[in-house]
Nucleic acid binder design. Structure first.
Lengths: 340, 340
DNA sequence: CTGTTAGCGCATTCAA
DNA sequence: TTGAATGCGCTAACAG
């Protein structure tokens, strides 16, 4: 039977209220009494029953998630996962609000961040654009005591308490290994397509990719990255142009969104045995993988990311830090055969 | 504010005790009263606060895990994860007992299963050998009302309530795709090494592998599977012999354990550019991947498996079924670059 | 068949 | 600076 506050009170020779004050670090207790209580705690090996505490306190965790809008399948899926989590709110004692902002608009992000009331919000998650104003706004919030986590794309220089997403440098390296192996010695160029180098996830993938390609597959060179703002039409145009004018292209790595455009361009071109690696499983990319148009998809499970973000935010709101092992988001590599 | 039992009692015009009886399906309530209460429940959209219920009931979940002993790194890691979960017992209201049995010994498994008291145990997890006696013992337990889940290796014909592990057919298919792509048209044989075809995970991997190889890479044939009982020494010997006598071997797929033996055999042989795919990240296999001896590792996260098993078992013990989406165990594909 | 009452482990008024 | 008493949402005796 694990010890309770009653046991602590008894062995320390004080009342429940005093035990509670010490446990929660509230003022108004003489140092000698504090010591007595703490002695009893460590003697009995007391650990607080968080569920009982939350019950007594009627604790709820008001959380805000800020997600870019727009047609991006992956982000829509992310939003859906947040909505699903919101549905489970009553059982998880959370109150989740989703704020949609225009994509690629740091100023809008900042505006929402600044509108957040530190008194009534116990945690914030956002898909960040890596710019100074956003970093500053995040830092301000953290300094006001509101834990902030980044989702999908990190804010490396900021005070955010956690990043819920994959290691994008490793993801880029993985893409390079796959493409290098799939080409097996055939010399040529790899066309790299990105959304925006202002997104830290995109720039990290690009650098990891280039590093491995240069070091391990010197027979392959890089064209790009060409930036498309994650717009499918732009992807289609830019890839189409590149394929026309660059007959030496043997592989394509799309490290951003807009896979639909890539698929269209490839179809128009009557694809000529390119090795193609892209990111994120969506209806389109899944079909392309099944059809053999894509050779591999690198994916992050945004359901995991959302659930992890919520766990981390709740834990930090209670002043404790969560099990990091459980919170690592994996780089999924999907071939046609292990698609879930 | 979400409704409580008090609200139900008030709108149904009955007492708390009656509400409780209806909610928990206890007998001794007139049908008309039951209806009244249920009407109130659905009217107010009541959902029970499980944490409060567990608090009041002093609920604990006594769980038994049955794991094969022996030197197998993966299984030792699995055991470690169960132990880690047991450490969190007090907070998760579980009481976890680990039973170690000799590996490849169905009779021992059956003996432990039969020793389990349905009155005092609320759930069982086991790494199963796919034999009739084990299936029968599992079915008996389930019929006695004890939920049983399989870990790592399933018992397809049984009444087990859930399987916590990867889709092994897909895993085998994935291995075949990787090996096929890595060999790129070079004809030859693939040596397939397994522990025992009595393990459903091994036999499923073998069949998935063979299917894809045959359909998509006809230039590659299969040698094996050779069975090693997951013993590293046996693996070393059998692989060594095969490499001596089979100069046409261009790739190796070890779908079982004993990677250490494989690594040794390859080293002795002065490895001649084989494509090598193995299962499970362990200290040895990780090193082999880093050294370029292995080309890919297919992995299952046994920490996830254990935590999933516990969630499922707890949920079933309470008569509810868990979110399946969250409980799917993924097939991890690790290259040198995305090793965690 | 139904209701009253006393807790589960903890937090929090309100007095002392 | 400390303690007694009440309640969070739910379950479980024990009465009626």
């Amino acid at each position: 039977m694990r010890p309770t506050v009653h046991d602590i009170a008894a062995t320390a020779g004080v009342s429940l209220a005093t035990v509670d004050r010490v446990l929660n670090g509230r003022p108004g207790v003489r140092q000698t009494t504090v010591d007595k209580v703490e002695a009893a705690v460590s003697l009995l090996g007391y650990v607080r029953d968080v569920t009982a505490a939350n019950l007594a306190r009627k604790r709820v965790y008001p959380l805000v998630f800020i997600v870019p809008g727009g047609p991006n399948s992956f982000l829509r899926n992310l939003t859906a996962e947040i909505t699903a989590a919101a549905q489970r709110s009553s059982i998880e004692r959370t109150v989740i609000r989703i704020e949609t902002v225009p994509p690629f608009d740091p100023a809008a992000l900042v505006r929402v961040l600044e509108s957040i009331d530190p008194q009534t919000v116990s945690g914030v998650g956002l898909v960040a654009t890596d710019t100074d104003d956003v970093t500053a706004a995040v830092n301000r919030l953290v300094e006001q005591g509101v834990p902030v986590v980044t989702l999908v794309s990190d804010l490396p220089g900021s005070q955010r308490v956690h990043y819920c997403g994959i290691d994008n440098i490793a993801a880029g390296r993985t893409a390079a290994s796959l493409i290098g192996r799939f080409c097996t010695g055939r010399p040529g160029k790899v066309l790299v397509v990105a959304g925006s180098m202002k997104l830290s996830d995109h720039s990290e993938r690009a650098s990891g990719f280039a590093a491995v390609l240069e070091a391990e597959f010197p027979e392959l060179g890089v064209i790009g990255p060409v930036e498309t703002n994650d717009d499918a039409d732009t992807v289609r145009q830019r890839v189409g142009m590149a394929l026309e004018t660059g007959p030496e292209i043997v592989a394509i790595y799309n490290l951003g969104a807009g896979n639909r455009g890539l698929i269209d361009a490839l179809a128009q071109h009557g694809h000529r045995n390119f090795a193609v690696v892209a990111h994120e499983v969506t209806p389109h990319s899944r079909q392309a993988l099944a059809d053999g148009v894509f050779d591999a998809i690198i994916n992050q499970d945004c359901g995991h990311e959302v659930r992890s973000a919520i766990r981390v935010l709740k834990a930090r709101a209670d002043g404790l830090d969560p099990l990091t092992a459980q919170e690592r988001i994996r780089i999924d590599v999907f071939l046609r055969d292990n698609l879930p």
